[in-house]
């Protein structure tokens, strides 16, 4: 007769893994922790530097006054801040419509190979470097109009935002309970009516949040704007003219050989960091609380 299970257990070696295995275990676990520290440390340093160097230049004037010539104290980036808002607003109008429509299509009708191909295309689009999108928008819009313009910049940003909005719209619309659709259909509403007046309103909060996240990220894009919206030293809100933007202005001011411009660049970087990261943080926290 074979020994009882308890006897077999007793026959096992006691004391767990040997010294070598325990040492290796401790080493690997410590290494993983050190990896996390190595990843987070430069980031924390970066944020600390931006705050420390940017804060001295932060004042109301930075937001409301125009850039001053080199050597004159004061001055701000009012034109660039307004320019970024205009660019992001225009890009949102385009991207939310097209991306939202696509996401809605994928969630409501998205079965079969065509929808799969659309999803994959959107993911590939997300991987296209922003400078390449800038080059394409240059050929598409700038050459067509004949000069650099805000609308060209907005279109470039819209292309960059598109994949994010498509994906998150699809996810949010899929979260709308099936019973809503069934109830509306049972009342005799045609499919389009169900989507348009029941599903969309139910998903709208999520779509707005996701779009805001994408917009915050678009606000920080620089490379495509260099080739499309160009930048502008003066006040301009016209869509068909070159327009200033915060990231491009930071780029110009950081590379300039004047220390007061460099200070402005630090402050601009701080404002951008606050704008993009704070908006992302708040939205993500809000989403977590709801979902």
């Amino acid at each position: 007769m074979s020994p009882a299970p308890r006897d077999r257990l007793a026959a096992l070696p006691r004391g767990g893994p040997g010294l070598a295995r325990r040492a290796w275990n401790a080493l690997v676990l410590a290494g993983c922790g050190a990896g996390l520290a190595l990843v987070l440390l430069p980031m924390i340093m970066l944020v600390a530097h931006i705050v420390a160097r940017g804060l001295p230049g932060l004042s109301l004037a930075f937001f409301v006054s125009m850039p001053k010539p080199v050597g004159e104290p004061g001055g701000g980036m009012a034109n660039a801040i307004v320019g970024t808002m205009i660019l992001v607003g225009a890009c949102g109008l385009i991207a939310v419509r097209v991306g939202g429509g696509t996401g809605l299509y994928l969630a409501e009708y998205g079965r079969g190979p065509f929808a799969g191909a659309v999803r994959y295309a959107a993911e590939l689009l997300a991987g296209v470097p922003s400078i390449v999108v800038g080059v394409a928008a240059y050929g598409l819009v700038v050459l067509t109009i004949g000069h650099f313009s805000a609308i060209a910049g907005a279109i470039a940003l819209a292309i960059l935002m598109l994949p994010t909005i498509v994906r998150s719209t699809e996810e949010v619309v899929r979260l709308v309970p099936r019973s809503y659709r069934e109830a509306a259909l049972a009342l005799g509403a045609p499919r389009w009516r169900v989507v348009q007046s029941v599903v969309l309103p139910a998903a709208s909060a999520g779509i707005v949040t996701a779009s805001m996240l994408a917009l915050a990220r678009a606000a920080g894009e620089t490379a495509p704007l260099l080739l499309t919206a160009l930048g502008n030293r003066f006040w301009s809100v016209a869509l068909d003219q070159p327009i200033a933007s915060l990231p491009v202005m930071i780029f110009d001011y950081a590379r300039a050989p004047y220390s007061d411009w460099n200070q402005q660049a630090w402050t601009g970087a701080l404002v951008l960091l606050l704008l993009v990261t704070a908006v992302s943080a708040m939205l993500r926290l809000a989403v977590r609380r709801i979902g």
């Binding site: 920080g220 590379r255 960091l273």
Partner: peptide
């Protein structure tokens, strides 16, 4: 979500 221009300023 930190944008590349901010990294550029820090690197420079």
């Amino acid at each position: 979500s930190i944008t590349s221009i901010v990294f550029g300023v820090w690197g420079l």
